[in-house]
Design a protein around this nucleic acid. Structure first.
Lengths: 229, 229
DNA sequence: CCAAAAGTGTTCAGGCTACACCCATGT
DNA sequence: ACATGGGTGTAGCCTGAACACTTTTGG
């Protein structure tokens, strides 16, 4: 049985790609590094995994410690292990991606006088380590997953309009979608509940608010139902 | 900056779920453990990651060392980190899954007087560690991926018949597929090349042999083409 | 009353499903 | 000659794409 100090071990970190939707643009939450290496560069929130926590726990903990974001959709993405991805020593990083409703979290990062900031996914600053690669992987996963699992709702407030939902898909997937066809299809899944509330904003007809029913989705999924947009 | 012995570190391993197709049944390659813990139990091939290799390299190396299988489709699956998944100490394992053409590798494991053996995916022995969970995850991934990426060919010899391909899909996905519709669709993708060869076996008409053209797939994929069965 | 986004149906084409018989071969 | 899997076409249905106008509100 291997003993702790028999062989050198790689260090283990977690890194989180946090996606948010702001004014119809996809954003990513980054923090500015205060120390070397890459001092001053922007990087994904993350840090070392403790020996007494799972990776999920480590990701959630680091995310909250560094950005204040918590209780959000958080899922393992991929594990990155290029030999020289960290100039100090061998560090292997398990990447996660998170989807947050920006309305709740935007202020926090912005007002904290913190070093955390939202950047448009299409216009990022130079990043530390191999974080560009991690981000690209996360974006690809998000786009893929959005099409066949109902995770888009995680980026919206609990109550949302169909137009907001449609814009979300258009933004993330980078496509134009026909309004009528989109509504027909989404409502056809019977996973959205129309609320007795409307969203009024601006000089135009108020929009019906809906809520996603995750329990219903779970039930349907077990019966072989396939979400797909 | 953290120093090597400042904090205890988890150990890192890789584990490989190797899938093969044998006489129309999906099989998994396991090895019998010669040492504690779980001495005598069957387990996924795998082992500790060296500090100077990437995870992909570690997975390929362990796979070859323990089973002789090499040069096969091998892809990262998920990283498992339950606190007590290894009774000795904290071990985090990056799981991979491999797809092999059993015709090439079957004999090796069988004749080696080795401790490696193929088991039907639906009828596995008791496994060591959390390997049941890893296997379940791999199976789910395989089923998912098979439907929207042309990876099934990795389980077949380079030259195969459409019936073999159809059986593959039926076996892995657990569905019946209509022969005519299947052929129409698969050939419609224009990713298979009919060879000037037939597969003759048994008292019946010989079958046309085909070959998958990966280069063509890459080209089409870049143009937005979506494989889907 | 004007500007702005919300909301709503129908038509058409293409893809998917279901289905049954002849073909080439080995024994 | 017969048993065995290989190979082929069509018709109905359903789903996805295209497309324009009315409604409700705030200013």
């Amino acid at each position: 049985m291997p003993h702790h100090y028999t062989y050198p071990r790689a260090a283990l970190t977690v890194d989180c790609v946090v996606f948010g939707l702001d004014a119809g643009a996809l954003k990513v939450l980054l923090i500015q590094r205060g120390i070397d290496p890459f001092k001053g560069r922007w990087a994904l929130p993350g840090g070392f995994v403790r020996v007494d926590e799972t990776l999920d726990e480590a990701a959630a903990r680091e995310l909250e410690e560094e950005t204040g974001v918590k209780d959000v959709f958080l899922e393992q993405l991929y594990t990155f292990s290029a030999i020289d991805r960290d100039p100090r020593e061998r560090v292997i990083s398990v990447a996660y991606y998170a989807l947050v409703n920006l309305a709740d979290h935007e202020t926090r990062a912005a007002t904290d006088a913190s070093d955390a900031q939202w950047f448009p996914a299409e216009k990022l600053p130079r990043l530390a380590f191999d974080h560009v690669e991690i981000l690209a992987t996360a974006l690809k996963r998000l786009r893929g997953k959005l099409r066949y699992e109902p995770i888009g709702f995680e980026l919206l407030p609990p109550k949302f309009t169909l137009t907001q939902l449609q814009h979300l898909y258009e933004t993330v997937l980078g496509t134009k979608i026909d309004k009528r066809n989109f509504r027909k299809k989404v409502l056809g899944f019977d996973l959205l509940e129309a609320l007795n509330e409307t969203h009024r904003e601006g000089p135009h007809r108020p929009a019906q608010l809906y809520r996603f029913n995750p329990a219903k989705y779970e039930r349907l999924k077990k019966k072989g139902f396939l979400f797909e947009l």
